[in-house]
């Protein structure tokens, strides 16, 4: 018997507000993430991966709407949360890591200043404690010169450094769950391995759960505990990683595996 799930999505359906009848982006998606595990949501482009990630944070673009289903986090129905409750939850309980941190960081502020925003909002620390915490966080994600990075603007860092800084920002308020949306797609293979390694370490160290959204089955094989394969808005196959990789049932999964072999 596995422990109670941290995040449970049941029968989630997301449609465009205007034409919700016939145009659905995600259809009847169900997935559960257990504490201290990494779940991978794998699918081709346009399959609704990112939309699902945003739906969890209730940050869907105005044209989209959750038409059906439920999302429970720590046993509570998140769809009933007020705007203020959601705001408290974002960053503090569930944080997000984006595909391209160059755009996910505000170009006009230094990395340190942006990390500080999360701390100001979610943690009650004074100025010095915050500065120390930022350096600790940057150190934790394997940045060797935290002082310099904190003082840098996003465009001054390399892609890998930026992604590490982004992860540092995501774990700043010690969330339970991190949604990582294609965190390695723009990095080269060596860096991908480094970042994946970092996720694994952070999971152990901070008791994190991670929802890894990716199109690349190769990335997740060594990392994910469970895999959910998404195709055209539906979960076509799901289960523990070993099982899926050993015996892919669905044609789409097989195709995905072909590409990475």
């Amino acid at each position: 018997m596995r422990p109670e799930s941290l995040l449970e999505i049941k029968n989630l359906t997301i449609g465009l507000s205007e034409e919700a009848e016939n145009k659905t982006i995600v259809q009847g998606l169900s997935l559960s993430i257990f504490p201290k595990t990494i779940a991978a949501l794998v699918g081709g482009s346009g399959s609704g991966k990112t939309t699902t990630g945003l739906a969890v944070l209730r940050l869907l673009p105005p044209v989209m709407d959750i038409t059906q289903g439920e999302i429970t986090f720590q046993g509570k129905d998140m769809l009933n949360y007020s705007i203020e409750q959601m705001r408290q939850l974002r960053g503090k309980e569930i944080a997000m890591v984006f595909q391209e941190p160059l755009y996910a960081f505000n170009p006009v502020f230094r990395i340190g200043q942006q990390m500080e925003e999360v701390l100001i909002y979610h943690c009650s620390l004074n100025k010095q404690q915050r500065e120390q915490r930022i350096l600790d966080l940057l150190d934790m994600v394997g940045i060797t010169e935290p002082q310099r990075v904190a003082q840098s603007y996003p465009h001054q860092l390399s892609g890998g450094m930026r992604q590490r800084a982004m992860i540092a920002q995501a774990i700043a308020a010690e969330p339970q769950l991190i949604i990582a949306d294609e965190p390695t797609s723009n990095l080269d293979v060596t860096l991908q391995a480094h970042i994946m390694d970092l996720f694994r370490k952070l999971k152990e160290r901070l008791n994190l759960s991670i929802l890894l959204i990716t199109h690349d089955l190769g990335v997740v094989t060594h990392l994910a505990d469970d895999i959910f394969v998404l195709s055209e808005g539906r979960v076509v196959e799901s289960g523990p990683t070993q099982m899926i990789l050993a015996k892919p049932q669905h044609r789409f999964t097989q195709e995905l595996m072909e590409t990475f072999r």
Partner: peptide, 28 residues
């Protein structure tokens, strides 16, 4: 529509903070 505005939302910043910190500085 910028990504960092979405990122700021995922960090739990309020609308007012986002306008003041992430939108207005770019009009400076």
């Amino acid at each position: 529509e910028r990504d960092y505005v979405l990122a700021a939302k995922t960090m739990g910043l309020s609308d007012f903070q986002i306008i003041v910190r992430h939108i207005l500085p770019h009009t400076l």
